[in-house]
């Protein structure tokens, strides 16, 4: 229940946060809403020596219309994403999923950037980023770079973020009326998905999976099958192609494969693929 001691540094600007991260060394961690990091620290599964608090950087909390895309600041809270009219209109899949994360209290504090940067394969938002081919903006000592979501998640809780980089913005292509579906399978509403599927059908199809690998992943087999004209049921049979879903207290890998097939089929049917 009680975290280990750490040095606390509060950043007053993005530039300062990047500097502090650099100074903090390997055990420095970024603190935004804290809803990914603090639970680990309380169980002493994580004991960072320096916490750089960016929670006060209001300039990173926004939703902007970027023409063909929506730009969402990394410190925008889940509840704000969920309740945003413009998100609801232009990227309704994102608004919907933001309302499915954790519970209301978590959504009041947790941030979109924190959730994505944590790189947890069991989180919902990374799948949305993948399915929509979102673009992530990372800021570091040498400036800003853009990374496609499909290149961002590199391993278990590992991402393309360098040690001294900060995720600042996520750009979601507007859906423009495309149909979509999010299927979250869990036992209790507050829990992480045992398996989840985000799907969007807009000419081509984007299908991504929650908790089906050591990182957030695309259902590449499904996307390829759809591109080749497969029916939802035929495409869904490829849900776990090339994947090694985890086995844990909730479910075996074998059952996750089965669930992925069912949920992908349902998602594609709902998204009108």
């Amino acid at each position: 229940m009680i975290p280990s001691s750490f040095e606390y540094r509060r950043a007053s600007s993005l530039a300062e946060a990047i500097t502090m991260l650099g100074e903090g060394g390997d055990d420095a961690k970024l603190l935004a809403g804290g809803h990914s990091l603090l639970p680990l620290m309380k169980l002493r599964l994580a004991s960072p020596t320096v916490l750089v608090d960016i929670g006060r950087l209001r300039e990173l909390s926004y939703v902007r219309d970027g023409g063909d895309h929506l730009a969402v600041g990394a410190l925008t809270r889940h509840a704000d994403v969920h309740n945003s009219d413009v998100v609801g209109r232009e990227v309704p899949l994102l608004a919907h999923v933001a309302g499915q994360i954790g519970d209301p209290q978590v959504r009041h504090r947790g941030t979109i950037g924190g959730s994505i940067a944590h790189g947890d394969p069991a989180s919902d938002l990374p799948a949305v980023c993948l399915a929509l081919r979102a673009t992530l903006l990372l800021a570091g000592p040498s400036g800003e770079r853009q990374v496609p979501a499909i290149e961002f998640f590199t391993g278990f809780l590992e991402t393309a973020l360098a040690r001294d980089e900060v995720l600042t913005e996520i750009r979601f292509p507007k859906l423009g009326g495309a149909r979509w579906s999010f299927q979250k399978f869990n036992v209790r509403a507050q829990d992480w998905a045992i398996v989840g599927v985000a799907a969007v059908r807009n000419g081509s199809a984007g299908v991504a999976l929650v908790n089906m690998a050591d990182r957030p992943v695309l259902a590449t087999g499904v996307e390829a099958a759809l591109a080749a004209g497969a029916s939802p049921e035929e495409a869904a049979a490829h849900a776990s192609d090339g994947l090694e879903p985890p086995s844990d207290v909730r479910a075996s890998g074998e059952y996750r494969r089965h669930l992925a097939t069912v949920l992908v089929r349902r998602a594609l049917e709902e998204a009108g693929a």
């Binding site: 229940m1 603090l38 309380k42 509840a79 519970d103 209290q105 978590v106 504090r109 507050q190």
Partner: peptide, 22 residues
């Protein structure tokens, strides 16, 4: 583990689990 909500307080009117905040 931020699961039970017994520690819920309002911050700026919004419910928050006060065990998951410094």
């Amino acid at each position: 583990t931020s699961s039970c909500g017994a520690c819920t307080v309002l911050i700026g009117g919004d419910s928050v689990k006060s065990c998951t905040m410094l």
